[in-house]
Simulated scan of single mutants.
Amino acid sequence: MRYPIVIELGDQDTAYSVIVPDLPGCFSAGDSFDEAITNATEAMTLWIEEEIKEGRSIPRPSTLESLKQLKDYEGPEWVWGFASVDPALFEEKAERINITIPRRILARLDAQAKAAGETRSGYIAHMAMTF
């Protein structure tokens, strides 16, 4: 899924900053143009994961044309671009998987899941989202 981003150009002394207008409060920076876009993608992923965790809906990307109408980003110091996030972040559908791990680890996993009051699958999902 591609979101429009607006990049404030940097130089030797100032980082490039990136704002994602469709995701309020989502911004990033980098020492180079490429690094700024890479960091923006990571910031977008974290922003979306947090919103999902809090049970909030995720805005769909606006058109570039509609965002260019915003007066906040006029001028030669701003450049428009796009950054992508994996659409799988939006999916809530459960998927059955098959994993192979040693029994001693499975026993430990099951004990930790029980202590946390969760199923094995729920505990694995929770652990994956907290690291």
Rank of each mutant, 00 (worst) to 15 (best):
Y123E: 08
P102M: 01
I105F: 11
R60E: 14
I58P: 15
L67G: 08
S84N: 13
S28Q: 06
D110A: 06
A83K: 03
G30F: 02
G75M: 05
T45H: 08
D72L: 09
F82A: 09
A83D: 07
E8T: 12
G81F: 00
L67Q: 07
P21F: 04
L70Q: 15
A88P: 12
G30Y: 03
M1I: 01
T45R: 06
T45V: 06
T130L: 13
A116V: 00
R56V: 03
E35R: 08
K71D: 15
I48N: 09
G10M: 07
P24W: 12
I99M: 09
I19E: 15
H126M: 11
S32W: 08
W78E: 08
K93D: 02
L109H: 03
N98E: 08
E54F: 07
E91N: 15
R2C: 13
P87W: 09
R2F: 12
A115Y: 00
A107G: 12
A36G: 00
A40G: 12
C26R: 00
K68E: 06
E49N: 05
G81E: 02
L67H: 04
E50Y: 02
T14S: 14
E35D: 14
A88N: 10
A83H: 04
P21Q: 08
G117D: 07
A116E: 10
R96V: 10
Q12V: 10
E35L: 12
P21W: 04
E50W: 00
A125K: 03
R108Q: 14
Y3K: 09
D22C: 07
S66P: 06
R96T: 13
V79P: 00
D110K: 03
V79Y: 06
I97R: 10
W80R: 03
W47H: 13
R60V: 04
E49Y: 00
I99S: 02
S57P: 00
G117E: 04
A83M: 09
A40K: 03
G10W: 00
I48R: 10
S62K: 02
M129C: 00
N39Y: 00
E54R: 12
D110I: 02
V18H: 05
S121P: 10
D86Q: 05
E35C: 07
A88V: 08
R60C: 01
E74V: 12
I124C: 08
T14H: 12
A113C: 05
D11M: 05
L46Y: 01
V79H: 11
V20M: 06
I101Q: 05
E74P: 14
K71T: 15
K53P: 01
W47S: 11
T38M: 06
T14R: 13
G55P: 09
E51P: 11
A36T: 05
L64H: 06
K93T: 10
R96A: 10
T130A: 10
A43F: 03
E95Q: 13
R104T: 14
A113K: 09
W47M: 10
I48C: 09
E91L: 09
K114N: 15
A115V: 02
L9D: 14
L67V: 03
T119D: 05
P59K: 02
D31Q: 05
Y16N: 07
V18N: 05
R2E: 15
P61G: 04
A125E: 15
P102T: 11
K71N: 15
T41M: 14
P76D: 15
R2K: 13
S57I: 02
K114L: 13
